[in-house]
Design a protein around this nucleic acid. Structure first.
Lengths: 339, 339
DNA sequence: ATTATCACAGAAAACGCTTTCGTTAAAGAA
DNA sequence: TTCTTTAACGAAAGCGTTTTCTGTGATAAT
């Protein structure tokens, strides 16, 4: 592999000057620069990131933390998408992403922070994690710049959706369609998103003058398909079941739909369903599912921008960005007015 | 950050001996080793991968190439899953994965190979790529070990599904249900998978004594939802439309289903649909879609194993692995016998 | 008692790059 | 002319490891 030394030899310049040609130093003549760059190109020179990192203490790598109970990994319908947009954005600045897991190989790397240090990442994107996890705390208390989405911790930058308003908007829509018996399948109560969406649901109800029914508020553990299925099952068992069901995530909505269908009912004839997230999958379903869309691409991009910025200017103030949500109307909610 | 030098100072041993303690050298006493390891642990020592790579010329990083026209990136329903399993497997050996794209930042990195060299990856997993692409050729002709799935090139290890038999089995199943008017929405004709599945379809037909109808063989560009939708549209326009439609991918099947539904028909009453791949998404659909499952986890794992092996013993013979496919029966195919 | 073997340890070079600082010659100021 | 500034360049140290090779004292073999 051709290295700077080789270019130096061919051009007659020193290694120092060669290096300067690449790194925008001013104390080098235009001539020298031109010759060196040309020669480097001809010789097919590619700098070695490792060596460079060693010298500069910058790796141009960003770690991704993906600490979710569901085990989807990269395939997670929501976070997978956020990461994709995040990745595309940081690549513009020359960063590569790397997945941070504990237990890497046989080494003595045992924690997220260890792995970050091993690879010398310049920053870390905590895409999905429980902030009660001591390992996560250890990480965000370290000197490694970090950003997260869909969660909040005052030690770290975050970008979130306006989840409160999202569900608020959702029940507003349902009420407009004539629904009064509106349920909510809540997401993880320990997650910010789960809490906010539930709050939005409750506030939406109040706003419409609808009294909250205790039985209509179910779920509350995970955001999963199964959890949605189970929650729907209890809703179905009620003496006076709801006509519309809001959810804290599309996967739960999908689970609920499956449950409804298994019970022999039809959507939206018998039950109206409102999803949350607007994951890609919905595009491909035969039955169009009405949902509250998060701005996934913005979420990924903003997170990327903030992190990169923080890497460049270390002492940056904590930023918290809130993204608008949007109601995406498809076919899963019935208009009771035109019965 | 604590480095070997610090451990050396504290323990009184030399840097050399400290290094030996970590790397399984034999010319070090048990005592020394124990003391060094203990001290390292106490001091929270984590080796720096960069420095190590520089010295060893191994990076413990594997590049992932994801060169697909669809633009899904990481979110690709099929390859995303393969990559996840691949990742989990290589992590056991201490490898991290990194996504290889051209045009990385402002650097003079312009090709996949450039990016690989920049990062010094030990191997590369060509998850999805067109082997006619000169950049891909450049890469597999380099000295970097590589492996691919769902494609074939005699220069590189590959793991594939028995796609031929998959579709063969599919039409066999459909014929058993009483179907004789069986169509096929073909995948990309330039892709091995697309070709093999089509071959399997044709062979299956012949095996059942069913004459192939030219009009029943449609599609042939991409594996996408849209492509499936469009292909189904022409099938629907036929004077004598098929009763069953096999596809070269679940996304196409989903597109076809949408098309059928938009046209006011019902599945499986009016048309039977057979998917291919068994992507995760199918689990969550209200209508269970019968499909030919590829063994995604095995595909990812085998690819990982082969690549890691090849990294360790460079001159390894080219391997080609063929995985079994499996018919997964759900609800989308109608049994014509019990009409 | 002498030599060969062995177990253990460390010095030093190497990996490929960046960056500080010093040097030189030419140009400008006095 | 002499002094100061400036532009261009290179020497060398440093980043944190690994690895080869040499050295030493103790033990075993002769």
């Amino acid at each position: 592999m051709v290295k700077m030394k080789d270019i130096a030899k061919v051009t007659g310049y020193s290694i120092t000057t060669v290096s300067k040609a690449f790194n925008g130093y001013k104390d080098i003549s235009d001539d020298a620069k031109k010759i060196i760059l040309k020669t480097a190109d001809d010789m097919g020179y590619i700098p070695k990131a490792n060596a460079r990192s060693l010298a500069t203490k910058r790796s141009l790598m960003i770690g991704i933390i993906f600490d979710e109970a569901l085990g989807f990994g990269i395939r997670h319908p929501f976070f997978g998408a956020v990461i994709e947009f995040f990745k595309e954005e940081v690549e513009k600045d020359g960063y590569d992403i790397i997945f941070i897991s504990k237990n890497i190989g046989k080494s003595n790397v045992k924690t997220y922070l260890d792995h970050c240090r091993l690879r010398g990442v310049d920053g870390v994107f905590i895409a999905c994690a429980n902030f009660d996890n001591p390992e996560i705390q250890q990480l965000i208390n370290s000197n490694i710049p970090s950003v997260t989405v869909e969660s909040f911790d005052n030690k770290i930058h975050s970008v979130n959706s306006d989840d409160f308003h999202g569900l608020y908007m959702g029940v507003e829509y349902l009420a407009r369609l004539g629904h009064t018996k509106i349920a909510h399948i809540a997401g993880d109560a320990t997650a910010l998103a789960g809490q906010e969406r539930k709050r939005g649901y409750l506030a939406g109800l109040k706003n419409e003058g609808i009294e909250a029914v205790e039985d209509y508020l179910v779920g509350g553990n995970m955001f999963s398909f199964d959890s949605g299925y189970k929650a729907m099952k209890v809703l179905l068992g009620l003496d006076n079941p709801p006509t519309a069901i809001t959810t804290s995530g599309d996967m739960m909505a999908l689970g609920a739909i499956k449950c409804i269908r298994d019970a022999g009912y039809h959507i939206p004839r018998d039950f109206s369903i409102l999803g949350y997230d607007n994951i890609d999958m919905l595009e491909y379903m035969a039955l169009g599912i009405t949902t509250i869309a998060q701005n996934v691409s913005q979420m990924g991009k903003k997170a990327a921008n903030i992190l990169v910025q923080n890497i460049k200017v270390p002492g940056m103030n904590k930023k918290e960005i809130i993204l608008d949500t949007k109601l995406v109307i498809r076919e899963s909610c019935r208009d009771l007015n035109q019965a």
